[in-house]
Design a protein around this nucleic acid. Structure first.
Lengths: 356, 356
DNA sequence: CCAACAAATCAAAACGTTTTGGATTGTGCG
DNA sequence: CGCACAATCCAAAACGTTTTGATTTGTTGG
């Protein structure tokens, strides 16, 4: 049983008794071809299921019609950050409107971040790239700038040349959190920060220190804890802190996973957030349901919207818009009552689902 | 400031004073080229950062060196299934060994599943495709079989032609769960199943009914609840069930999200799994920490390993191995004590992290 | 010294597409 | 009728790569 032949412009042209040129033109409504023929060609293309070969189109036009988003896989070692999928959905849906495809490249532990970007550029895997874990002097950003390769970074840099980015206001978020904790009477507030030299860790620290200064609280180096953001690593780091410093009454966590880690550590040390033994502040995307939601304030960022913004910037870049005008810093939304927030979202989603 | 020129075989050849042919051959250690020249070419390629243009290679060889994995985006509407990322990592890492790239295509709500597969095939976006949400008469599988397009389905079909797949033993898992619940004294055990006609829903039902029959329990249609697997949808469906049938003492959930939904629903109905008011059985990947872990038995499936198996099958297919020999059904691992399981995994992971 | 042969390199074709520049036909007008 | 011109269509080139077949150079044996 031979498989049906693959349809390309040549076979389509032969089947119609036309030239390749005419068929190609007809498919994009070229004015030089008789309306009659256009209809006939489109009809045949539809029934035969013709779609242009992406490799061929690229070779001729230089455009792959693909955008690459880099997925940092080592972080998935234990739990994955579910929020990335929401971001992927946002990116994908937005790109779709301009008939771009998203390709997600997994950055495994064995490749350097720059290698991945270089490969995308040099092998022409995509027309542009989106990456996160951005550092102040990000080498990937520098590479893209040098080779004029379109990119949007999730996170700011400190590079001189302007470039497109989407970021969260981590400085503002942490400042707000610390201020409120102090108002509640907390004196020893720990800040949990990721390792890896990401720019936003610096913003978080700045917000923390600025709040302390404004509040007249002392800056204590030992209250700054840094570790990878996996559940286990942050649990270990948090456990260390809580064991060596029993005076800590509040922790400002980084992402959702580190919040889980903090909770596990608190429980292990016999401190129950639900009983008010420890205040936990979380940051991140749509929060999963947790054991101790009462003692938690959460700074929320809808990651699907992040993805949409990233994609919009990318599409604008490809349209030739200047990068200067494609820089977004999104505020966090503070949630004091997670339970209520959840039910509100639910009723909202149910209502949306009802009217399609 | 002009950007550096892109390096291709032509520029590389000119730069070396050689022909394109010789450079191409040298880069793949062709025996017809002088060892001296090979070294010179490779040196130049490395310093100039040459990598072959993927589009050009494809056009000539017919191989894109890419594998596509379809991501079902509508499910992310509220919470995403973090496990998919673990699977992606597994696939990606395994493909890497044969220098294949993974591209993740997001299947949004606006495209039919078949359309996505057809596009990958016809536009030549990849050399093979991996998809999930497999149905007994899966049209995507039928399409791939007809056109002899390599694919591995995550989930079985009932098609006559054999094809490669990876699946879990859902029938066995549910049978085991129901049997144990009955041994604990439960009489009214609800089964939660996904909508969408996926094959594994049928296996789950079969395991459920077989267990009931073996145990001499009656089959009660009203104990079978079907709904989409998002947190909110399953909470609503579970709420309905618990409200209309107060005799239910145990629920066999589908994935992790539906388990969260069931817990929310239980709480809403004033039934506390921690107090033994309701037994909840979960299925899925690495479980997030939950409010009521005491009343939960979890059937675990390491999704990274699923990904690795999917990728291995795909690579084998592309090597020409027959699909008959590429069919895997993986057993679930029952976890009665989630707390202990978690700490075990943690110590294990920490030990691994210590010796790199 | 020349034929025969191996070693090393190269020119050209092909993949599927778009586009440039022609070619062919049909129509209107002087 | 003959010419210009529009309306259609088509051949060929180009993109970057691999591979087939040919060509050049160097070496060996008679």
């Amino acid at each position: 049983m031979p498989s049906p032949p693959r349809i390309n412009l040549k076979t389509l042209a032969e089947h119609l008794g036309l030239s390749i040129t005419t068929v190609s033109r007809a498919l994009k409504d070229g004015p030089e071809v008789k309306p009659d023929t256009v209809a006939r060609v489109k009809q045949a293309a539809a029934t035969l299921g013709y779609l242009p070969d992406a490799g061929g189109v690229y070779l001729r036009t230089g455009r792959t019609m693909k955008i690459c988003s880099v997925f940092f896989a080592p972080e998935v070692a234990d739990y994955g950050d579910a929020g990335f999928l929401a971001q992927v959905e946002g990116v994908s849906r937005t790109l779709e409107t301009d008939s771009y495809n998203l390709i997600v490249l997994a950055q495994t532990a064995s490749q350097s971040p720059l290698e991945t970007v270089r490969r995308v550029f040099q092998q022409r895997l995509a027309d542009g790239i989106i990456f996160s874990r951005t550092t102040p002097m990000d080498e990937r950003a520098r590479f893209c700038l040098e080779f004029k390769f379109p990119f949007v970074s999730f996170g700011r840099t400190e590079l001189h040349s302007p470039h497109a980015f989407v970021d969260h206001d981590d400085e503002g978020g942490v400042y707000d959190a610390v201020t409120r904790l102090a108002a509640e009477g907390h004196k020893r507030i720990a800040l949990f920060n990721p390792t890896g030299g990401m720019t936003y860790a610096g913003f978080r620290l700045r917000g923390y220190q600025r709040a302390l200064a404004d509040l007249g609280l002392p800056w204590d180096r030992s209250l700054l804890v840094t570790s990878p953001l996996s559940v286990w690593a942050s649990q270990a780091a948090m456990g260390d802190l809580l064991a060596r410093d029993t005076g800590v009454t509040a922790i400002v966590c980084a992402n959702q996973l580190s919040m889980f880690g903090a909770m596990d550590a608190a429980q292990e040390q016999g401190r129950d957030p639900a009983q008010g033994d420890l205040r936990i502040i979380g940051f991140g995307g749509m929060p999963f349901r947790m054991p101790f939601e009462q003692g938690v304030t959460y700074y929320y960022q809808p990651q699907r919207r992040d993805g949409e913004e990233l994609a919009r910037h990318m599409l604008a870049l490809l349209q030739g818009e200047p990068a200067e005008s494609l820089q977004t810093v999104l505020p966090y939304q503070r949630i004091d009552d997670l339970q209520r927030f959840r039910t509100d979202l639910r009723t909202q989603a149910m209502a949306e689902a009802r009217r399609p």
